[in-house]
Amino acid sequence: MSQTVVEINNLVKRYKELIALDNFSLKIEEGEVFGLLGPNGSGKTTTINCLLSLLSYDKGEVKVFGEAMKPDRLDLKARIGVVSQNVAVFNELTVYENVDFFCGLYIKDKKLKKQYVNEALEFVDIMDFKNFYPKKLSGGLLRRLNIACGIAHKPELIIFDEPTVAVDPQSRNRILEGIAELNKNGATIIYTSHYMEEVEQLCNRVLIMDKGKMIACGTSDELRRMIKNSESVVVNIKRLDESVIEDIKKLNHVYDVRYMNDILTIKCSGGKHNITHVVEYFAERQLNYDRIYSELPTLNDVFLEITGKELRDKE
């Protein structure tokens, strides 16, 4: 039977007027990669900080490894690793010294510490830069150093708060692979992000939150099944008659049609041959288009459908 690693019940956190967490609950089992997905300002970091007892909260309870989390529970803290949203390293220490410093806050044995530090540096692949000072590192390398500092002591629960912000795709992939590997080696992972692609790729279970509230929680598939959208047919087409949109709306299973920037998006619920119907319609009307394709729903669609807004601003 798997153990519950984190349990948050009815958490309420206010910053003066603003309610950052509104009766928020979640439960994470051992061995999970748990995604916390939400737009900017939805309360992800606040959740993490309450979980770590860095922030006080107005109501609710937080349990870690089955025990109530308090600021002075050093024994529980010893089993947690945190990769914070902001890079938190000492500018006066080299890459190696930084990892060594933070690892040394947990690991007393010198030999073991050295081994762990080297493993962490290998793991995030910055061994070549171990004598560099943080100021001399690129953004991606800095992020990797930040990760190494958080995981070197081999914690059972690792919390990643948007570790891939402002990181190039190559570094980002390395980071994601690394996190998957940590999980394979036995760590339970909490991963927050507003990039749904990452969360979909990495996490077993996802909680979508907005304005401090949970709006949905489950596996990616479960979440997709929660909404009526099951397929979007996208047509790249220049100039389009208003009547065409009206006609398409009348097709079977189609529940929403939008035309913007020469892109026609047709949202369909269920049905098997949605794209065929659309293609046939265009042939009938003898309309030319550049491209037509079908997209499966994403967590973004889930978010969009539940909240009526995009998960993040289009970049």
């Binding site: 900080n49 860095l54 024994d75 947690i80 945190v82 902001n86 938190a88 390293v89 000492f90």
Partner: peptide, 20 residues
């Protein structure tokens, strides 16, 4: 500064560690 979560980012990191 370097061990108080409300004073710096490294402070937060030290604060969540198991050091007294």
């Amino acid at each position: 500064e370097s061990c108080q979560a409300n004073q710096s980012d490294v402070g937060a990191r030290v604060d969540v560690s198991s050091v007294g």
